[in-house]
Design a protein around this nucleic acid. Structure first.
Lengths: 107, 107
DNA sequence: ACATCATTTTGTTATTATGCCAAATATCAC
DNA sequence: GTGATATTTGGCATAATAACAAAATGATGT
């Protein structure tokens, strides 16, 4: 399995449903922390497991939510499965949101 | 009730929990569409209601989710309640996400 | 083939989210 | 104040999500 960077069919405008799915994937504290960790580089499931006080099966499910949303991909090497961000620039999204929420106005 | 634009205490770094809450608010198709509509300008509940085939009470609840996340604010004028984006730049977030998801790589 | 290790999947249960209806609230016009 | 209009809230049913434990999978080493 070789890693490639490429424009894909997904480069069409995302449907509102797809957007909602990505936001939903990011709507859980544990999954947000996984994404933030992966921003520093790939990690295997066992690495991630040390970060949280949760069952490995629970972690595995969170990873599958992120994978289904297209936020991460996995690669099996030896005994381990390594996860990484499909797009490290997803972190820009966090900054973008922080800035937006920072400048909001009130009624 | 006068509308103001200002930096607030919320300008500190958002906690991961707060971020998750904002993402959760955006994780429903109806709520995303509400936000997209409000990007074009304020709207009262009855305006929004015409866009969807849902009960008004359901719409009202969606609006309260968006309000609690800090994404919209409301202002009562006459018989109507008008909603608007606390920060129109929240739309940048959508573009940002679309771009990010567009350039992703695969394992 | 067998045992081991890392991870995923399945089954189950608890919690949360969604949606409708009906009741409550608030404003406006008379 | 009464009635009409616009919106929110409470109550309830159903669906979706989250968590754990246990079983299943798949690669590795013997």
């Amino acid at each position: 399995m070789k890693r490639v960077t490429r424009k894909t069919a997904a480069c069409r405008k995302m449907t509102v449903k797809e957007k909602a799915q990505v936001f939903k994937a990011l709507s859980h504290v544990t999954r947000l922390q996984i994404v933030q960790r992966l921003a520093k580089g790939e990690a295997c499931v066992c690495d991630l497991l040390e970060m949280f006080d949760i069952d490995m099966s629970t972690l595995s499910r969170h990873l599958s939510v992120l994978r289904n949303a297209g936020l991460v991909f996995d690669e099996k090497r030896g005994k381990n499965v390594f996860y990484d961000l499909t797009c490290p620039c997803i972190l820009d999204l966090f900054d973008c949101m922080e800035e937006a929420m920072c400048q909001r106005r009130y009624g």
